[in-house]
Design a protein around this nucleic acid. Sequence first.
DNA 1: TCTGGGGTCCTAGGACCC
DNA 2: TCTGGGGTCCTAGGACCC
Length: 450
Amino acid sequence: MAVLPAAESRTSPIASTTATADLRLAGQRWVALVDINNCYVSCERLFDASLYGRPVVVLSNNDGCVISRSAEAKALGIPMGVPLFQIREQIRRHGIRVRSSNYVLYGELSRRVMALLAEFVGEGEQEVYSIDECFLDLTGHQPRYDLSALGQQIRQRLQQWLGLPACVGIGHTRTQAKLANYLAKKQAHWQGVCDLTALSTGERQALQQQIPVGEVWGIGRQLSRSLNTLGIASVQQLVETPIPVLQRRFGVVMARTVYELQGIPCLSLETHQQPRQQLICSRSFGQLITQLADLQEALNWYVMRAAERLRKQGSCCTLITVMLRTNRHRTQDAQYYPSLTLGTGHPTDDVRVLNRLAQQALSQIFKPGYNYKKAGIVLTGIVAREGATSDLFSAPHPLHSERFMGAVEAITARYGRQAIGLGGSALQDRPWHMASRQRSTNPLMGWVVG
DNA sequence: TCTGGGGTCCTAGGACCC
DNA sequence: TCTGGGGTCCTAGGACCC
């Protein structure tokens, strides 16, 4: 949430040094970011010890591209997001182990991680940021404990109890904590925990000098390029640039980022999970789709999935968007990227209503003669369902619950131990998901090379 | 010839994140 | 041959209103 409203920040007095000092005195916080290393690969290793010490990659849906790499795979130069077919030769040459993704497993492990981390802080001091990342407010610990030692304790417990490696970054803001986490991962001498707040100004500046500006949280490829053309290449150079200049050129988001880097919080900890403002369900197809009937069936399934999530968070929606995509990589094909949004008339979570609208939208945008690669729906205009009792705010998943092992057992009982690598291929009974490539003999195993 | 000023809401698109 | 899925926020511009 923005502490700096756009209008006020244009003339914000906190750019001056004295005001900065006041603001820090007013309520400085200590924030940690805990991040599981190579999360999906680390999860796979828990269930297949032969993956330790070897290069491993985990693949996206349809086994399309690489979405997680072990340290060994990174060292071999396997880039993030690379399509599988482009690294076949490297896989063969280096004996890289390959797994399909299994989000049910990762989700359950994530719940365990978050529950364990919750034990280190009080109520309302934990923000689960993503499946493998969590912010902790350590302000209460700060006067009493060495935060680096606490970070080490967190790492050790994750390793001992769950077998998952993690790094911890500590700063006065979330952006600083992210940067610290980057250092903890990149520079071995931190031993997995970097506390930026414990450094002198000179030490911090020297570190920031070494870090490319694109590593900052919120500065992606585009902004990075633009900053570079202005001669701003390192984090330190960014921090030294006057904020009003940056704000005029790049907007309020950039201004917030730089305040955050300076230790002035502009983003607060979101310790209570908010209902989603939009729900997306979309898939790329394993093979190109030309028939309306196949798209109809796919949409039917997306609507069911999305409506399920909608109900789970106690919401209704008022708008539904249907979108189709051809394969942009096939330059020989005619391209078509239509989408259409229809209103529901009244807030609803009724699958039948949503499906009727989705099919109606589809019939309006579908054109024969194209090779469709992807389809999806987006539910927006989300409002709370009247009288809804959302389970969003229910108690965190108990650490020692049986749900986790139950899920793993259910998978292995049904498909065998090897099925831990299921993922996209589990959808093979649906023609619009069927992978066109020849797979290994066990369709649930994904690719196993070497 | 010359055509107010300010506000809200909505949407599309772009940037970012994991 | 083969290229993921699910989110967030911000901005600009148009419609509409008083």
